[in-house]
Amino acid sequence: MTNVTDIPTEVRQVRTSAPTNEPGLTNARTADPGHLIRKPRRRRGTRIAATMAPYLQAAPIALVFLIFFVLPLAATVIVSFWQYTQYSIEPALTVQNYGDVFYGCFDQLPGLCTTFRTYLSTLKFGIVVWATTLVIGFTVAYFLAFHVRTLKVQVICFVLCTIPFWTSIVIRMISWIPLLGRNGLVNQALMAMGVTDTPLEGLLYSDFAVILALTHLYTLFMVVPIFNSLMRIDPALIEASHDAGATGAQTLRHVILPLARPGILIGSIFVVTVVVGDFMTIGIMGGQQIASVGKVIQTQMQFLQFPLAAANAVILLATVLAGVWALLKLVDIRREL
């Protein structure tokens, strides 16, 4: 950042010497001011190379996105308009699949159709898990950033946080089952302590179990970006807040939270998108009794109803994108980073 503020004159010089209306070009130049200072006068060839450089630098990742993201996504969207039988899919242009996804949804109102019910359930998990991971994640990040003094201990604590990620997601999930089951450790302990006489059935294969497992799995996604944001906060600001007579809570509310917003936002996007698309955790911890959009898509794919599954996927994607868009409206992430 300091570089840019140091060399405004040079940048202006270059701009006036080669006026252009193309914003990409200007950005490319301003983005690499150090380069411009060293060689204020260049031959035409190197100028084109300089123009092209950012594009070339971005090309590999763009190519990866194109092949592994854009193309499959385009295929999904296209297939969602195709027709299918039990053993084939045929190119067509029909909205039948979208009609089938929302089958009965509008005649049944105010009653909820399967799709609305499923989305509502998925959304519920999204919101609850977002809240739990945010509270826990922020607390952990706060502790790491402000209460752990030395960098060494911070790194050690941070690595400790990632240890669960060394095993597979399924194992982390399944390890809850012997703990929460009807004859599991928790129930045995509760009964031994005389808290209850009969085992608590709701611990496993319930909303509670799903939320617990999802929180366990995804809290770290919240910790990392929030920790990153908190580490960037200038300690002088916090000191100033104290000096001005703010209590700890006031400092948290008016200084730290606003400055942690980008981290919170990034973490939120991670958690919400992952949870909304999850079907394995909801399947295993919910005893497959709880519907999720992902599970519906999986069932449809197993029965070779690819176009219908594609239509569902497109709708899910649109829903998630709408959510992310709403989150981005709350925070201008480009400015805050």
Partner: peptide
């Protein structure tokens, strides 16, 4: 299959 999904949901 559609009805079964209804049951699961």
């Amino acid at each position: 299959v559609r009805k079964w999904n209804e049951f699961i949901a």
